[in-house]
Design a protein around this nucleic acid. Sequence first.
RNA 1: GCGCCCGUAGCUCAGUCGGAUAGAGCAUCAGCCUUCUAAGCUGAGGGUCGCUGGUUCGAUUCCAGCCGGGCGCACCA
Length: 598
Amino acid sequence: MRSMQVETIPVLLAAKIRSALDNETIPVHVVPSADRRFGDYQTTVAMQVAKQRGVNPRTLAQEITSRIDMAPMGPPPEIAGAGFINFRLDPHWLAARTAALAADARLGCPPILRRTLVVDFSSPNVAKSMHVGHIRSTILGDCICRIGRFLGHRVIADNHIGDWGTQFGILLVGWNTLLNREALAKEPIAELERLYKTVSAQCDPDKPGYDPGLRAQAKQELVKLQAGDSKNLASWREMIRLSQIQFDEVYARLGVRFDHMYGESFYNPALKGVVEDLLQKGVARESEGAVCVFSDHTVPEKDDPFLIQRDGQWVDVPAIVQKADGAANYMTTDLATLDYRLREFSPDDIVYVTDGRQQQHFRQLFAVFRRWRPEAAARVTLSHVWFGSILGEDNKPFKTRSGDTVKLADLLDEAVERAERLIAERNPELDPAERAATARIIGLGAVKYADLSPNRQGDYVFNWDKMLSFQGNTAPYLQYSYVRIQSIFRKSAEGGRPVAAPAADSPLTLTEEAEILLAKRLNQFGEILPQVIVDYKPNILATYLFDLAGCFHNFFESCPVLKSEEPIRSSRLALCHVTGRMLREGLAMLGIEVPERM
RNA sequence: GCGCCCGUAGCUCAGUCGGAUAGAGCAUCAGCCUUCUAAGCUGAGGGUCGCUGGUUCGAUUCCAGCCGGGCGCACCA
């Protein structure tokens, strides 16, 4: 399929305005009109410019519109209110554009400057089960990758697995003293979690069974591991191997793929050099036995990630790159990772998808990196794409290590089971094999959509019913819209008239209100998709698809397709075809599949 | 204390580079299946956009100050 390589409607209209203003650089925002009475698109640029120039906005709007030639897009623009300029689209022009859209591989997305994007997401920990806390990063990150790829960017998905750190001291003590081989063979992650839980409780001074000796032993095992002790190294590798099996299973179910899974340990050999280089360049210095990066006082105190006000005084909150015990921490690892990625991939953007509580960490990380490698930092945009917490019914965050978390695998099972029950109820004719396959698509889609449709920065309360609700603004609603379109094509084929994909030059005939509204909405896909990636906000795409589905249902209710006469019939089939494709591909960008029947 | 985020319909949430009469879903009520899948569609009711000021022709959106909630604040990630 070819690409039509055209600009979006707001871009075309903005160009006309700029040319009318004799100013090619002025920012002009053309947006879909809030109300249908005000046409299809509107701009407030006349009021803004009039303000700067101290002239009457309506007069200026008059001047602008008199110099705009709208043909063949639509009638001359209208002026309304205080100086709004409203544009209307000619249905014939819209019909031609929609026909081209139907045959466009990019669904109307404008050409882009290709960028290289590294996306760091999911980041599960070895020896722990993946739980609801991992779901947002995994699904959001995957979605960003998918949209980036669709737009034509080079995307590198990198899973920064937690395979190193102090928890392995505790795990090794458990491994050496409490390991049940049988349990490990049966349920490796559950057994590893049991080891961790048992030993860590005894290493916690605030807990009843506290054993200082065991705590020292854990530290000892960690030191041995870090020093390359072969026995500990072998145990550690076994833990990673067992964990990797779990990760692979979950990712396969979710349809998430990574280009790399370099764990934290991958960067171990580089850590010493990072610290030395920071010291040598004067970015870091020793403080209380640790190696730290302090504020360089180049930004106002309140914007300085290395300062905080306490009791009216600005005090240092340095970034620690080497602890007093000589060990590196996650700041060091992240710096080494950043350095590696820049050398290996030469990215234009690096995106970190984590929860919002790590905002300070990333502000410090980015600031340290800019001071450490200014020339490299100038070539890359670093973004922390953060999201809110998942809360329990009591409005308190899920605790990560206290056992009360819902396992991701269980969540997915439950979603699929619920979907299967619902399908059996609604559509008993589906044979069991198709029902199972459809249940998987619907159940997983519901879970993903529940995470992608709200604003990522908000917290949300975990709730089975809400997450798996199949009514209203949900994935099943969108999938259902697609299914109904496919049903039309099936019916047509059964009647001996299979429907071919519409050609770019096959004319559409748009007469009914619902057809025109649907066509307008279809043409907005190319406007919203770039917005989604600019702010990394998949909910914009989700909202668009929901809205599109609404327009389709509206059209579907009021405009018979197969029973209408030519040329209306072909025209409506083309509308169905492009809507179906947009729903399928739009949902695919959210990581959601579509069934043919449900 | 300081920083970040949040506060929009009974509930869950969209919407802000300032724009016209603030939108959905759920729930409630009233309609629509002999007709392309009713997981749908149409309509109704429901709002001091936390409060108070400021900037502006125009503020849910920007600024300041409050109120309420969440998170974070040297060697965990």
